[in-house]
Write a protein that binds this DNA or RNA. Structure first.
Length: 489
RNA sequence: GCCGCUAUCGUCUAACGGUUAGGACAUCGGAUUUUCAAUCCGGCAAUCGGGGUUCGAUUCCCCGUAGCGGUACCA
């Protein structure tokens, strides 16, 4: 019998869901699901200062919107229960005391200031002078109610070794490891105590997390050893880097998952981009042939193998993300696209006028067809549709590329003439024939000695109020004869 | 400073120790075209440096360099 794979994603509820967190969650989810295992969500809220109200619900909402749902974890929208660390404080306290009894940890009564004074020489690993306090003295101080922390008692001259599933064998000299705090003075555990206790108690078989945790592994080795727990499989993945250098951070551009959604990125596209950052599928490739890059979450889960993860840190390339999003938009059916755009507008569109128009537009589909294949993110769309709903001020014709070579009186004459042509069109614009429409504009251009393209541009500017627009003929059909004539006059 | 990780086009990446080092994004050129796009075709572009091991290193080992991470009673 093989044991079930159990992985976990263990974020902190700080109110900010970094795109790198999404990637960590994705890999861990895929590792569990690809092996018919169990995916656990655990909330590590052991820092009271950083806790943000409501962020647990928010966290759950975000990952599930990507299709990353968990098998075990906080109860949704209610009391969160045992998968939230702040609910488990007695357990950690007991566990820390157990380590003290076993000689793997000790009480330390130093204040923060005193510790900092002792840490002046950073070359030497920190060892508290209270490391070897007699048990009588400890009892005495505890009875007096002195503030304390419990620290890990790092042994001397030991080599601590881990076999990382991704990075291979890594060793540390125990003499370089600080006597880290395990239980804080406020009774909360530190990350180190929390993860080790919980990963064991929750039966986690495979730990996946960011490489920023690699340096804490030797401490965890000691903790697992102290408790007598077996060390689980562990893999540390490289962090996503910013094109400007260093970790991807808010200061250098957007990195918030919810903000990407707000900007009109699709969950599938974001996921697809993120999954390929540091991973590539082990599939057959033919020389010179285009590689497959579009994968759904389901396909990813099936293909995912830790062996195919990259060891080096990828740089977050927004251009490629944009491309992925465009691909997903273009590959989506129109009905689905309309639905997605409506949902997005409802949630995120800040412009009340446009939001109202879009949500109440029964012919939204026809308009979206015109822009669907020319945008990369949903937030570009309202700007492209605006002219359908209100008359946009016509720019100075002589500043429009192409039209600047004509006299403005001539342009005026030409457009007036076009108005007459248009008035002969069928009242029902759906009966208009594009070839005739093109021919009419061309012959008018000939009459005024204009380039064909310039005449189209002239009409475009009057109808759409801009030199850039969706296809003109279809746009005019949607606006209808009366409205088109009104705009031209 | 100390500890640790990493190193293929600008970026994401592929390549049983033997390939003209492949693909994608970006970029540049062309086709298409009523604008902007989209699409199609083509071009430019990489194995960090130095030593080994080997008949042969992008690939294995060592050193250097660079980048990144950690060095909290934050995670």
């Amino acid at each position: 019998m093989t044991t079930t794979v159990r992985t976990r994603f263990a974020p902190s509820p700080t109110g900010f869901f970094h795109i790198g967190n999404l990637r960590t969650a994705l890999y861990s989810y895929a590792l569990a699901k690809g092996n018919k295992g169990v995916f656990v969500l655990r909330v590590e809220d052991t820092d009271k200062k950083r806790y943000v109200e409501g962020s647990i619900d928010n966290l759950i909402q975000i990952i599930t919107s990507f299709g990353i749902d968990y098998d075990e974890g906080p109860i949704k929208g209610g009391k969160y229960g045992p998968y939230v660390q702040s609910e488990r404080l007695e357990i950690y306290k007991k566990k820390a005391e157990e380590l003290v009894e076993k000689g793997y940890a000790y009480y330390c009564f130093l204040t923060l200031d005193e510790v900092n004074e002792l840490k002046v020489d950073k070359k030497i690993a920190f060892r508290s002078p209270h490391r070897n306090l007699s048990s009588d003295e400890v009892k005495d101080r505890l009875n007096k109610g002195e503030k304390y922390v419990i620290r890990l008692k790092v042994p001397s001259n030991r080599t601590l070794t881990v076999f990382d599933e991704l990075l291979g064998k890594i060793e540390w000299d125990s003499n370089t490891i600080d006597d880290t705090v395990l239980l804080k003075a406020d009774g909360f555990p530190t990350y180190h105590l929390g993860v080790v206790v919980d990963d064991y108690m929750m039966g986690i078989t495979h730990i996946t997390r960011g490489i920023e945790w690699l340096p804490s592994v030797p401490k965890h080795i000691l903790l697992f050893e102290g408790f007598g727990y077996p060390f689980p499989k562990v893999a540390h993945m490289p962090v996503i880097l910013d094109p400007a250098g260093g970790k991807l951070s808010k200061r250098k551009g957007n990195v918030s998952t919810s903000q990407f959604l707000e900007e009109g990125y699709l969950e599938e596209a974001l996921l697809n981009f993120i999954m390929l950052l540091g991973w590539s599928p082990n599939i057959e490739r033919k020389y010179g042939e285009r590689e497959r890059e579009i994968f759904s979450l389901k396909e990813f889960v099936e293909l995912f193998d830790m062996k195919d993860l990259n060891k080096s840190s990828p740089v977050f390339d927004r251009e490629k993300l944009l491309w992925f999003n465009g691909q997903y938009i273009r590959n989506m059916g129109v009905d689905k696209f309309v639905e997605r755009f409506r949902d997005w507008s409802k949630k995120y569109l800040k412009d009340d006028f446009m939001q109202n128009k879009i949500l109440n537009d029964k012919e939204l589909g026809a308009k979206l067809v015109l822009v669907k294949d020319r945008v990369h993110v949903l937030s570009e769309i309202p700007g492209l549709l605006r002219f359908f709903y209100e008359v946009i001020k016509i720019p100075n014709l002589l500043e429009v590329k192409g039209l600047d070579s004509y006299k403005s009186e001539d342009l005026k004459k030409a457009i007036d003439d076009y108005s007459k042509v248009l008035s002969s069109y069928d009242e029902d614009s759906s009966k208009w024939i594009q070839d005739n429409w093109v021919a009419d504009i061309r012959s008018l251009a000939d009459k005024y000695a204009m380039k064909h393209a310039d005449m189209f541009m002239l009409v475009r500017v009057y109808i759409c109020g801009s030199a850039f627009s969706p296809p003109l003929f279809e746009a005019m059909q949607i606006l209808g004869k009366e409205e088109c004539i009104r705009r031209i006059n």
